[in-house]
């Protein structure tokens, strides 16, 4: 299955192509969301739609990174306008044979696969969605 491959720092991640609506450059500034969890970068105007953007690094509890994120991967989640802020997007690759990650920590991660001799973490769109909602419900 074809996946959109992107990076958080050096780490590579993949999402099924069918789950991605498009990839855009983040705006110069985001509108901050009052009282939102810190992983929520803010909202942006995408051609009249208000898209909530979450920093993937924080969503996956990864360490701080020095490189400013340069892309927003917009999920195709029906009416939920959700974007993932990532370091960069590499392209689209066929990813086969996803094996369950050992000690799977979060529903957002579906498993790992090998691509061009290197590992790629395959994310689960529903799990990502759930993880974002969990951020909001748990922070209360």
């Amino acid at each position: 299955m074809r996946h959109v491959i992107f990076r958080v720092e050096k780490e590579r991640y993949g999402l099924p192509l069918s789950a991605v609506r498009e990839v855009v450059v983040p705006p110069a500034r985001f509108t901050r969301v009052p009282r939102a969890p810190s992983a929520i970068t803010g909202v942006m105007n995408l051609r009249g739609r208000v898209v909530t953007v979450v920093e993937l690094r924080q969503l996956l509890n990864l360490p701080d990174s020095p490189t400013p994120p340069a892309r927003v991967v917009l999920l195709d989640r029906g009416r939920r306008d959700l974007g993932l802020l990532v370091t960069d997007v590499d392209g689209i690759e066929a990813v086969e044979r996803v094996s369950t990650a050992p000690g799977k920590l979060t529903p957002a991660i579906r498993g790992v696969a090998r691509l061009g001799g290197l590992g790629v973490t395959v994310l689960d769109p529903e799990g990502l969605d759930a993880a974002v909602v969990a951020l909001f419900t748990h922070s209360k």
Binding site: L17, R21, M44, L46, G48, V50, R79
Partner: peptide, 26 residues
């Protein structure tokens, strides 16, 4: 807002806003 499309296959370039029950004004 500088949301420029990147070269991606047509499924990614499909126009957004097809579920247009939300509304906004410019």
């Amino acid at each position: 807002m500088g949301a420029q499309g990147l070269p991606l296959p047509p499924d990614l370039l499909a126009p957004p806003g097809t579920s247009s029950d939300t509304a906004s004004t410019s």
